[in-house]
Design a protein around this nucleic acid. Structure first.
Lengths: 157, 157
DNA sequence: TTGCTGAGTATAGGAAAGTAAACTCAGAAG
DNA sequence: CTTCTGAGTTTACTTTCCTATACTCAGCAA
């Protein structure tokens, strides 16, 4: 019996990230924030997401420090809240760009993707790559996974 | 009114990828396949996932071409199916590694991550990076999103 | 022919999500 | 003082998803 099958998977970083961003609408909200949307009614309009879920997801993202609230003021209206991304939220961009990249390759319309991501400085298309600390480009099957400092086995057999 | 709020988001590559891997357990199944698990009962054991969902997710991943079935045979038992990852499935590794990386940074135990990913050739830790086609390393806020060939507006106003 | 095992299928109950509409609340406008 | 608006909250109902348990099925062994 492979002992890895009895490892404790409750502290897996993938699972823990999915606890935060794995619910429906969450990543799509982040996509919109990343595209520049910041107001409640604008999220509702572009996503078609129910208001109660939108409010719940935004609150959770703010609680987690992925979004932060600021205020904006239209002339003739009172101040209202808006949502902006934090550095912690920006650190999710590689993961989301990884999803975008896979969808572009395997699930795009025949004419191509709906959105292109490019480097502001040079205009070239961007993608995510796996690299090692030595700076080598790494293929997915050249990665090996080894137990880390928090590795442990399941409590009881 | 920002016209981007009336764009058609139904062909978004992020949303389309989430249609495939966005359900509960799917990414965790891929994590296990990636770690070397291949048998139905082993997925069940390590994930603690209900069997009917496991069967449904495995069938969907095979239908999508992300996993493929092969057979194995233990001495004294009949042939049984096992699940292996395809190249299309391996192309999800950057996205999953992005999730892992974020969890390692923000949600790991005090002593560190449970699993470390390293380059088989040199042993160095691997991570995902954003790069442009010119080869420049790109920060998340140096990315701009522009309409692609399949960009379109919502059908009716 | 009875039992064992791995790989599922079937079913029933509960939780979460989707849909829709009504309601609240604060402040600016009239 | 009433109305309007954006940003929610609340309630009610339906549908989908998740969980847990029971059951089936195909061979191999005794």
């Amino acid at each position: 019996m492979d002992p890895r099958l009895d490892r404790d998977t409750s502290n897996c970083s993938i699972a823990r990230t999915l606890e935060v961003v794995g619910e429906k609408w969450t990543i799509l909200i982040l996509r919109e924030v990343w595209y520049g949307t910041s107001r409640f009614s604008d999220f509702e309009r572009v996503l078609g997401c129910p208001r109660n879920l939108l409010a719940a997801r935004l609150r959770m993202l703010v609680d987690e420090g992925i979004l932060a609230t600021e205020t904006y003021k239209e002339p003739g209206s009172r101040s209202r809240p808006k949502y902006v991304i934090t550095p912690k939220g920006m650190d999710l961009v590689p993961a989301v760009l990884g999803l975008l990249q896979w969808g572009d390759r395997y699930r795009a319309d025949p004419e191509g993707p709906a959105v292109l991501a490019r480097h502001r400085a040079c205009g070239a298309h961007v993608d995510v790559q796996i690299r090692c600390e030595q700076g080598h480009a790494v293929q997915a099957d050249d990665i090996e996974s080894v137990p880390g400092p928090a590795f442990r086995m399941k409590p009881a057999g």
